[in-house]
Each structure stands twice: as C-alpha cells, then as structure tokens.
Simulated assay, not measured.
Amino acid sequence: MSRTPEPLRRAALPVLVALALTGCAPDAPGSPKDTPSTGTAEKRTTSVRPESPGKPESAASPTHVTIASIGVSSTLMRLGLNEDGTVQVPPAEKGMTAGWYTGGAVPGERGAAVLIGHNDTRFGKAVFHDLRKIGKGADIAIRNDRGAEIHFRVTGTETVGKKAFPTEKVYGSTGERALRLITCDGAFDPQGHPVDNLIVYAIRS
C-alpha cells in the first residue's frame, strides 16, 4: 500500500484496514452481507475512511447523473459513513439508484467527487451494470439542486483486485475537478463475492 497522505493520517475517526472502495467487498463489521439469490450475489461497498474535506456551505448538492453512452440515468442519494468507518452504499432494493459520497468533493468543485453504484443485486441488474462498457472521452453529466448541469470527460478506467484498492488515488487530494465512479467487476470467489473493482476516472469538461 502506498504511503498514507497527511490529511488521512489526521482523520478523527479510526482508520480500518483497506478492503475495497467499490460496489463489492468482503464482509466487514457494520456492513451488509452479500445476499445470494437466484445465482446472483448482492454487491456493496466497504472501505477505509477516506479523506473527507466536507461539503462547502456554498456548494450545490448533486441530484442526478446521466451517462448517455451506456444508458445510465439515475437520481443520486447521499452516502456517508457507517459507524465502523466504512463507506455506505445504496440499499439493494434501490439498486438502480447511484449514490454520492458526501465526505468527498462536490462534483464540479476542486477535489475528487465519488459516485458509488451497484453492478447487480439480488433483484437483478443495477445502475452501473454496464459501466465496464464506458469509453475514454465519454460524457458524464451531473445535475445539481440548483438546476445546473456539470459535464465530465472520462479519462480512463481501472480494474483492481479488492485487496489492492488504490485508496489514495481514488479518494486522495487532487487539484483537479475530478470524478470517480465505482462499482464491482470480475469473477466470484468461493463465497460468492466479486473479486475485482471497476473504477472510472473523469475530469470536468
């Protein structure tokens, strides 16, 4: 694991061992269990507590995300932290709804804004099921609660093992107006948990 940045070392909450920062992860205290159903494992996000700059008082909140190239159109729910410091995820019954991690940057503001969505749940395909099909240069549009629409351009994607999730790269400080989309990917382990995580990187257009 890379050296922990100063802001993360100063975090007030305890730091847990990194598991994954995606829509799928091994079981962890305080996080919901994967729920197999008709051969599909429910996938969810767990993580260490990332750097949390907080939402500026003047910033608008994101309410909707559209990725026209892969047919995504979803409202955004607010996601915080569980008591154990893991990142919350949308509940399985809201699998077609993505979430914005409020501890990161506001989309369009300087820093890394993070959206999290399921790939599949026990109810079937979820909002980020086709995220692996997104291409470099694709447009991601986010609308906020003031009616403004902010556009981001995809710069790349990365598939990583859950145990090697790049916490600092995804959540760490950056001078760019960046966006990260996170979900699960890959094959299943013997317990029915996906072994990989898919990360999409984008910057404001």
Rank of each mutant, 00 (worst) to 15 (best):
K133G: 02
G137F: 06
H151V: 11
G137E: 08
H151D: 03
I150W: 11
E149V: 15
K125A: 13
A126R: 00
A126C: 12
F152V: 00
I140R: 05
G124K: 10
E149N: 05
I142P: 03
H129F: 15
A148T: 09
I150Q: 12
G147S: 08
F128Y: 15
K133C: 01
I150C: 06
I134Y: 01
R122S: 12
I134D: 02
N144R: 08
R122W: 14
I142F: 05
G147R: 06
E149Y: 01
K133E: 15
G124I: 07
A148G: 04
A126H: 02
N144Y: 06
D139P: 00
E149K: 11
R153Y: 00
G124A: 09
I150D: 05
H129V: 00
A141Q: 12
D130V: 00
G135D: 11
D139C: 02
H129A: 02
R146Q: 14
H151G: 04
G137K: 11
V127D: 08
R146I: 05
G137Y: 11
K133Q: 13
F152D: 03
I134M: 07
I150M: 11
G124L: 08
F152Y: 14
D145P: 00
F128R: 06
R153Q: 13
R143W: 00
A148L: 09
V154H: 06
K136R: 14
R132T: 03
G147T: 04
G147D: 09
K125Q: 13
R146V: 10
A141S: 15
R132M: 07
K133M: 09
N144D: 15
G137R: 09
G124M: 09
R146S: 11
I142H: 04
N144A: 07
I140S: 03
F128T: 03
F123S: 08
A138C: 06
N144G: 07
R132W: 04
E149G: 01
R132K: 13
A141V: 13
V154Y: 02
L131M: 12
E149A: 09
A138W: 03
N144V: 01
I140H: 06
G124R: 12
D145F: 05
R146H: 12
K125L: 10
G137C: 04
I140E: 02
D139W: 07
G137M: 07
I140C: 04
I134K: 01
G147N: 05
D139M: 10
G137N: 11
F123M: 09
R143V: 10
F152W: 06
F123H: 15
H151E: 07
F123I: 06
E149M: 05
V154E: 08
L131P: 07
G147A: 10
E149H: 00
N144E: 06
V127G: 10
R143P: 00
I134V: 15
K136E: 13
L131R: 08
D130K: 13
V154R: 11
K133V: 00
A148I: 04
F123W: 12
A141E: 14
